[in-house]
Design a protein around this nucleic acid. Structure first.
Lengths: 169, 169
DNA sequence: CTGAAAAGGTTGACACATCAACCATTAACA
DNA sequence: TGTTAATGGTTGATGTGTCAACCTTTTCAG
C-alpha cells in the first residue's frame, strides 16, 4: 500500500486508513462530491440545482408522453423523497407542467415545457465539455474499466443495503 | 459499447448516453449516492448525519490537540460552508467541545469529547463490516485499480473546477 | 357490492444547507 | 504607530431536504 495514499493526503489524514475498502469508499464519496460541484457550477447560474437539472433531463428523455411523479423519483441519480416540491419549483419557473391522468386519477403526469427544453439545450454543450475535461486524463479503456468497477461496486452496495433492512424476508 | 449499459438500465434511461464521459459521471454520482445511503443507515439510528460523523472522525484523528473550525471544513469529504452550525449541533449533543485559542484569539479549537469517542467506537465495527461487504465483490487488485482511477478523475475535476473560475490568474 | 388495503401524491413541521453581511482579531505597511 | 487589509468565525435570511401523517383513487377479497 502506498503510504500515505493520495486521498489520505488530500484530506490531510494523519493516520492511514483502517482498510483498503474504507479508503475506496472515502475516495468514491469525495470524487463524487467534486464532480457534483462541477455540475453545480454550470447549472447554478441558471437558477437550477443539480436535482432540478436531473428532473428536467429525465423529462426530456420521456418526451411528449411525460412521466408520473413517483416514476421520476425512481429514475433520479440521488434518491429523494422530496420529489413533489422539487417539481413544484420547476412548475413555478414554467419549466415543467403537470396534469392529472384521466384514466387513473391518482397519477399526475409531468412534462417538460418548451422553456424547459430551451434551457436544457443551452446547458448541453457546456456540460458535455466539462464532462470531457473531467475525464480527459483517462484513456478510453480506463473509462470502460472505471464504469465496470463502479457497476460491481453498486452490486455490492445493493447487497449491503438489503442486509441492513431488518425484514429482508 | 454495451448497449444499453448497466447504469442506463438502472435509471431506466430510454436512449443511450451522449458520451462515455457522461455515462461515467452519472455512474460515479449514482454509486456514491448509494454508498452514502449505506453509511447513513448505520449512523442515523444514533442521531448522526454522515457529515456530523465525518467531523467526529476528523476530530478523533486530530487527538488531544483538536483543530480550528475552518481546518475541519477543509478536511471534510463533502465541502460545506455550514461548518459552524454543524459543530453547534455536535456541541449541543456533548460530542464536541470548543474553546477559543489563547495565542490567536480569532481561532476556535474543537475537540472530541469522551462521549464522542465512545459513540465513534461503537460505530467502528458496523461501518467496517459494511465497507467490506460493499466491496467484497472486488478483488484486491480491482480495489487498487478503482482507487487509482478515482485519483486520476479527481485530477481532472480539479482542472475543470479551475477552468470554471473566471479569475484563474 | 361493500369494506379493507394498496397505490399515488400532497402537505405540515422541522432539520439542514447556502449565501452574503458582519464582528473580532491579527498581520502588513507606510 | 495608526490605518488598512486579511484571517477566522458567526449570524440572519432564505431556500431546500426529510419524515410522518394525510387525502384521494383504485384494487381486490369476500
Amino acid at each position: 500500500m502506498t503510504n500515505p495514499s493520495r486521498i489520505a493526503r488530500e484530506i490531510k489524514q494523519t493516520r492511514p486508513f483502517a482498510s483498503r475498502a474504507q479508503e475506496t469508499v472515502v475516495a468514491l464519496l469525495r470524487t463524487a462530491d467534486m464532480a457534483r460541484r462541477v455540475v453545480t457550477a454550470i447549472v447554478e447560474p441558471h437558477d437550477l440545482t443539480t436535482q432540478q437539472y436531473n428532473v428536467l433531463r429525465i423529462l426530456r428523455g420521456a418526451g411528449e408522453a411525460g412521466l408520473p411523479t413517483l416514476e421520476i423519483a425512481e429514475r433520479m441519480i440521488d434518491q429523494t423523497p422530496g420529489i413533489t416540491r422539487l417539481i413544484d419549483r420547476l412548475e413555478t419557473k414554467q419549466l415543467v407542467r403537470r396534469e392529472r391522468c384521466l384514466t387513473d386519477r391518482r397519477q399526475v403526469f409531468c412534462r417538460i415545457t418548451k422553456n424547459g427544453l430551451k434551457l436544457l439545450a443551452s446547458l448541453d454543450e457546456p456540460l458535455r465539455q466539462s464532462e470531457e475535461q473531467v475525464l480527459a486524463s483517462l484513456t478510453r479503456s480506463e473509462l470502460t474499466q472505471l464504469i465496470h468497477l463502479l457497476d460491481k461496486t453498486r452490486d455490492g452496495i445493493a447487497a449491503a443495503l438489503q442486509a441492513q433492512r431488518p425484514d429482508h424476508s
